[in-house]
């Protein structure tokens, strides 16, 4: 970790005034985002994640706290400084927010126009960006003629036009189907690797975090419930919010408490799913009762988790745990 993170948030507070009282959206958030990483912020709706990312470029104004971008407090900036800072910190949105009356090329050129880049230079840059997002052929099309995924690609090209250091993604894949989500995530990962742009991403989908983020913060009720590397947080989930998000605990609205002891098997890309259970049955001679399974296959590997009922006999239980551990899987005892 470097001494000075790219984005440092200190004790951020945001309270909304609503008729009949106040809603605390952010309740003292502190976090550090390093240069070049893909940082995920996940939470249920209403957890404050959208407010948090919108505070980062001052679309929302927090009541208290500091947001340091490269050591500069964005909240203390005057109008001109803020505009310059925003050009170094692009944002993409769930609803894409493209200019509907302008062509794809004009949309991508907009940030260059407002920055006063000469026309011929801007046009060359637009071409380059459209090539990056594989939409060269759509330069003269209007957004209405594009699919959701294509529109988000245009939005990404537009966001990259000003050569930003940070890309803020506000639920960027939430309006897209799973296939399109994959291609947008791959593109974001590619941009992060090739251009070294730091990506801050908020989502309510664990799969998104698992696939591209290096670190994650779990937001719950306006504060950070848990924070760390994605692998660590996923395997050693400590907070109740985290457990709910990963499906270890039933969600708050869902009151079907099973009241059983279970084993949580975590798949982190190492092993295949089906043979493991089949072999477990054969090797240990136990009947496996699967309580829940949420395993996704990405690039031929399995990611996710499975909950099986813990065998009543402690000895067999130990046997099962030992077997799975030898197979390279992480197993945890939980009560659901």
């Amino acid at each position: 970790m470097s001494l000075q993170p790219l984005i440092e948030i200190r004790n951020l507070k945001k309270v909304y005034q609503v008729p009949g009282g106040e809603v605390v959206a952010l309740d003292g958030i502190s976090l550090r985002i390093e240069k070049g990483e893909i940082y995920g912020i996940i939470g249920m709706s209403g957890a404050g994640k959208s407010t948090l990312i919108r505070c980062m470029n001052k679309l929302d104004i927090p009541n208290d706290g500091q947001i340091l971008i490269d050591g500069q407090d964005i909240l203390a900036m005057n109008g001109k400084q803020l505009m310059a800072a925003r050009r170094k910190m692009s944002m993409i949105f769930q609803q894409f927010n493209l200019l509907m009356q302008k062509t794809v090329a004009r949309n991508v050129r907009y940030p260059l126009e407002i920055a006063g880049v000469p026309k011929n230079k801007a046009n060359a840059r637009v071409k380059e960006l459209l090539k990056l997002v594989e939409l060269e052929s759509k330069a003269d099309a209007y957004p209405i003629q594009l699919s959701g995924g294509q529109r988000q690609r245009v939005a990404i090209a537009r966001a990259l036009a000003s050569n930003p250091e940070v890309l803020l993604c506000d639920e960027a894949t939430s309006a897209l189907d799973p296939m399109t989500t994959q291609s947008i995530l791959t593109l974001l990962q590619d941009i992060n690797k090739r251009l070294g742009i730091t990506v801050v991403l908020i989502t309510h989908e664990m799969a998104v975090i698992r696939q591209i983020c290096s670190r994650v913060a779990i937001l719950d009720g306006g504060s950070i419930a848990e924070e760390g590397t994605v692998d660590d947080v996923f395997v050693h989930t400590r907070s109740a919010a985290g457990k709910r998000l990963f499906g270890i605990l039933p969600s708050e609205e869902d009151d079907t408490v099973l009241d059983v002891d279970a084993l949580r098997i975590v798949f982190d890309g190492g092993k295949e799913t089906q043979p493991i259970i089949a072999e477990l049955v054969k090797a240990c001679g136990v009947e496996v009762n699967i309580l829940s399974a949420d395993v996704k296959r990405l690039n031929g590997k399995s990611y996710g988790q499975m909950m099986i009922e813990m065998p009543k006999d402690p000895q067999i239980c130990q046997q099962v745990i030992a077997y799975l551990t030898v197979q390279g899987l992480t197993v945890k005892e939980v009560h659901v």
Binding site: M91, M100, Q101, P111, I114, S162
Partner: peptide
């Protein structure tokens, strides 16, 4: 949302009026 995006891109008030609101 479009006006918000223009804001996030660092547009001045005048640019938002002239290049976003009126054309849209």
């Amino acid at each position: 949302g479009v006006i918000e995006a223009a804001k996030a891109m660092g547009s001045t008030t005048w640019q938002i009026i002239w290049k976003v609101m009126l054309p849209e």
